[in-house]
Amino acid sequence: MLELRLVQGSLLKKLLEAIKDLVTDANFDCSATGFSLQAMDSSHVALVSLLLRSEAFEHYRCDRNISMGLNLSNMAKVLRCSGPDDIITLKADDGGDSLTFMFESPNQDKIADFEMKLMDIDSEHLGIPDTEYQAIVRMPSAEFARICKDLSGIGDTIAISVTKEGVKFSTRGDIGSANIVCRQNTSVDKPEDATIIEMEEPVTLTFALRYINSFTKATPLSNQVTLSLSSDLPVVVEYKIAEMGYIRFYLAPKIDE
């Protein structure tokens, strides 16, 4: 028996909006740790890993580890039927072939339930090694989203380079080129407005901009985004969900031939 009650139901809605265009079908895994998902896009260039810890839920009952295959675009459609302040409860029976979503309005005057059929999805779970990254950049998520959107009007790739000067985002296309440099800035009124750069070694990596742009759909989940970079490794773009979990996107770099 599975029963998960999420008071801040909008979190689940935002998570689905962040991944539904990147991944078509995926397994949600439920264990004592929490509610999680790991999936790659169809071309195996990007990987998303998300976790809502069990502590994030007001009520968390998961009698045995369960993996539930769902079409994410359909799940997003179901979640769009919930109100912005609704409490969302997920329910499934052991060995059942469906997942029930229950939406309760905050004052309990409206209760809706939607049942979705589960799918069998063959997915390979990848081991993500613990890595010391050469550079870690923390910056306002809205600023990062703005930069990616602006650059995608100019070119198809984004070079991210971190030096002691700051972090530089560059692109090049038919109409010309663009460079945007963000310097470390900790003298801000609110911590979420800070840009913090930790650098062991300078690093430059190039990525397909359309993937990075897709990751920024997670912006409503967090005021800050963290970019972790090492030469010849996938970048990690992480949005922390308060104390409750995270969504991490891994993107394989473009490599010089």
């Binding site: 397909a208 993107l251 394989a252 770099p253 031939e257």
Partner: peptide, 14 residues
């Protein structure tokens, strides 16, 4: 020329 690499090149099946 930049070639797109794949995630599976870096992370292996667990």
């Amino acid at each position: 020329v930049n070639k797109q690499s794949q995630i599976t090149t870096f992370f292996s099946k667990s």
